[in-house]
């Protein structure tokens, strides 16, 4: 359950980050330059894709009935956390999913080690 939850959490955050950076103002907040239109579109598309992928992860964690509830909660809360982080620590906001990815792999490894993969 915890691996599904962590995957959902990371994907939801990554998705919100993608949607956020797809907006010119927030892209400039981090890189101080105007993004080309194709990059914005790609970031937004990637964001939606990550949000969509978070959905099966939530189903994995909670089952078909409760999964969507958890998905809504994760997407909302990670979005809110991103909003708080962005002006205070923009670089951290950017690198958080990478650091989280390492954590996820560790968790996954721990799960495999205990014989309960995913």
């Amino acid at each position: 359950m915890l691996t599904g939850f962590t995957a959902g959490l990371l994907l939801a955050y990554t998705g919100m980050l993608g949607l956020c950076l797809g907006l010119e103002r927030h892209y400039r907040q981090i890189w101080q330059q105007v993004p080309p239109a194709w990059l914005r579109r790609t970031l937004r598309a990637a964001g939606w894709l990550a949000l969509a992928l978070a959905f099966p992860a939530c189903i994995q964690a909670w089952g078909a009935a409760m999964g969507p509830v958890g998905w809504f909660g994760l997407v909302s809360l990670t979005g809110f956390a991103l909003v708080l982080l962005l002006p205070l620590a923009p670089r951290l906001a950017l690198w958080l999913p990478a650091a989280g990815g390492v954590l996820w792999v560790l968790l996954l490894g721990a799960g495999l080690w205990r014989g309960e993969p995913f």
């Binding site: 359950m1 915890l2 409760m66 809360l77």
Partner: peptide, 12 residues
């Protein structure tokens, strides 16, 4: 949904 869901509700 167990403790993970409880935390989501708490934070929300």
């Amino acid at each position: 949904g167990g403790y993970p869901m409880r935390w989501l509700y708490f934070l929300c």
